[in-house]
């Protein structure tokens, strides 16, 4: 990045004393200035650049059909548009039209349009709920009382030293890039809420501090979906699921790959371990099994990194 200077577009009016600078010799100079201006803010600049030019570059790479097939994989063809959509650099209507312009058959683009719909849905709910978006929308279906969940983030999570290669990898990416694939968000959220039994609000706030696309709509309601305060059952996963959609990249280097992985069990075993018996969950689960759906299968309405929403079973 040799020609790295960052000059703001010119203003047609005189600047006032005390206004913030709009010209920098380099991205490093911008970072240094921001560290001066915002000394409380932890971290450094993300490798992901803000701005319309970068947003349009990504928009031009949209491949709705490939997205539909491969979006669940961490290295799959997801759009990475979420930070730009969240901040209105691109409107949802502009992205919709870009998808339409690349649509040969409706079926091939339905998944991506559906994911944009999720973003619109969460925004409508935020409008309706206001700051109530921080409260449980429904009772938890985990069999545990709300009081059973810790209210703060443990240090090993905040510092990314849980000893689990996958979780520590996701945490490092959250802290350095401010963006995570939606599947990684779901796994990390489920680990926090169900394995570590931490209030979803603590995790949601942690994500909002770091995610470039963080807003309480998609973020909090997705945490509530994982926790089960906005869904009919808690979301959890097992090693087989994580290993498949991460192409084994974390498990290969994990110290716990042979023994001690907390995710290395069947869904039945994990359910018994993580949740207290609750007749309603089991009744729903039984119906789902009879319907031929399995937690290991690719889920209906599965995750979109663009929209920080977990996969859902409906």
């Amino acid at each position: 990045m040799a020609s790295d200077s960052l000059a703001g577009v010119p203003l047609a009016w005189p600047e006032q004393p005390g206004e913030l600078p709009r010209r920098f010799d380099s991205r490093q100079a911008l970072e240094a200035e921001l560290q001066q201006l915002f000394p409380e803010a932890p971290g450094a600049l993300s490798p992901i650049r803000g701005g319309r030019r970068q947003a349009e570059t990504l928009l031009n790479r949209l491949q709705p059909e490939r997205y539909a097939k491969g979006r669940n994989f961490l290295d799959g063809p997801v759009t990475r548009l979420s930070p730009y959509i969240r901040h209105g650099v691109l409107t949802l209507a502009e992205v919709r039209d870009a998808v339409f312009a690349r649509t040969r058959s409706r079926q091939g683009s339905e998944k991506l349009i559906n994911e944009l719909g999720w973003r619109d849905y969460w925004q409508r709910l935020w409008q309706q709920l206001g700051d109530g978006i921080w409260r449980d929308q429904e009772e938890l279906k985990t069999g545990h009382s709300a009081a059973a969940y810790a209210s703060t983030l443990p240090a090993d999570i905040d510092e990314g030293r849980t000893g689990l290669a996958c979780m520590d990898g996701f945490i490092a990416e959250l802290h350095t890039s401010g963006w995570l694939h939606n599947h990684a968000r779901m796994w990390l959220a489920a680990y926090l809420v169900h394995w570590r039994r931490i209030r979803w609000q603590a995790g949601a706030q942690w994500f909002l501090r770091h995610l470039l696309d963080g807003d309480p709509a998609s973020n909090n309601l997705s945490w509530q979906w994982v926790a089960s305060s906005f869904s009919h059952k808690p979301y959890f996963f097992n090693r087989g699921n994580l290993e498949r959609y991460s192409n084994g990249s974390f498990c290969r280097s994990c110290a716990l790959r042979e023994q001690g992985c907390p995710f290395d069990a069947s869904y039945e075993q994990l359910e018994a371990e993580l949740f207290a018996p609750l007749p309603a969950i089991r009744a729903v689960d039984q119906r789902n099994r009879e319907g031929g759906r399995d937690r290991n299968s690719t889920r209906q309405g599965a995750p979109s990194a663009a929209l920080s929403r977990p996969a859902r079973r409906r």
Binding site: G43, G50, L212
Partner: peptide
């Protein structure tokens, strides 16, 4: 809020 979020906004 982290510096990466502020930096992203600033570049926009």
């Amino acid at each position: 809020v982290s510096l990466q979020r502020i930096g992203f906004l600033y570049e926009c």
